[in-house]
């Protein structure tokens, strides 16, 4: 007998991706679209990638995008409601949106601390709550929170970022217990160093050092992470919840 999650595959599934315009979010959006999901993404501003996707789908049948201030809970809830009205369901959520304020904690401006807590943590909580309003009536859903290996091991200069990413793990573990009986799964992906806008500032020496400390001898790619996100969202992971999985090539720190 098919599980509820398997039987849903007959209908196109709807995923929300926060911060889907650049870097990892962009790769996740592209990957989910390639796998025939309907994807709704938001970011503060349009990028060429978003413009290209919107132009390719003028009837908004597969890709919906809105300009949203990710730190505004009402805007996040409104976005989730729009997606529900437009497509009638929300099957998946990827809490990807994040900002990285690099620097020693004692040197960091108040505004940078607040921005990271707001964008990386509070927004994920509010968006998750809004999406659960769609998933609970369905009795199914899968959420992936993008954490970081910095939530699992220490690293200088990213203490606030690490704190927000570790908090997502706490959110994942408790919420998985809370909504599991309603058929909703929630997991965390913890990427290591991978090529993205956030690591664009690394020098060749830094990149070589990271590769040397990685058993698989390279930095990751956004596709490495997107593949795991897809797996966790898919029915293939129907019995996996409350987990944190690192995608870091075995990085030893």
């Amino acid at each position: 007998m098919k599980t509820k999650e398997e039987s849903m595959t007959a209908e196109r599934q709807v995923a929300i991706v926060s911060g889907g315009s650049r870097g990892l979010g962009r790769a996740i959006v592209a990957d989910l679209l390639r796998r025939d999901m309907i994807v709704a993404a938001f970011s503060r501003s349009k990028t060429p990638f978003i413009e290209q996707r919107l132009a390719a789908d003028p009837r908004v049948e597969s890709f919906h995008w809105a300009s949203i201030d990710g730190s505004d809970p009402q805007a996040l809830a409104g976005f989730a409601r729009d997606v529900l009205r437009r497509y009638g369901r929300i099957d998946a959520l990827v809490n990807n949106m994040a900002t990285l304020g690099d620097g020693l904690l004692t040197m960091m401006r108040d505004a940078d601390i607040h921005a990271q807590v707001s964008m990386n943590l509070e927004s994920a909580i509010f968006l998750t709550r809004a999406c659960l309003k769609g998933m609970l009536p369905q009795g199914s859903g899968s959420i992936v929170n993008i954490s970081s290996v910095n939530a699992l091991r220490g690293q200088t200069g990213v203490s606030v970022y690490s704190a927000t990413k570790a908090a997502l793990i706490g959110l994942t573990k408790s919420l998985a217990v809370e909504v599991g009986p309603a058929g909703i799964r929630i997991n965390c992906v913890a990427p290591g160093y991978f090529d993205s806008d956030m690591t664009g500032g690394f020098t060749d020496d830094q990149r070589a050092r990271i590769a040397r400390r990685t058993p698989l001898r390279r930095l990751g790619t956004v596709e490495d992470v997107a593949n795991l996100v897809w797996f966790l969202l898919s029915p293939e992971a129907a019995f996996i919840t409350a987990q944190v999985i690192a995608v870091d090539g075995g990085f030893v720190g």
Binding site: L84, L132, K133, G134, L136, P137, G139, E178, V179, P181, A182
Partner: peptide, 13 residues
Amino acid sequence: SLDLARIIAKLEM
């Protein structure tokens, strides 16, 4: 309590 949460979500829709 989770059942009540589901009822409220359904009613909100």
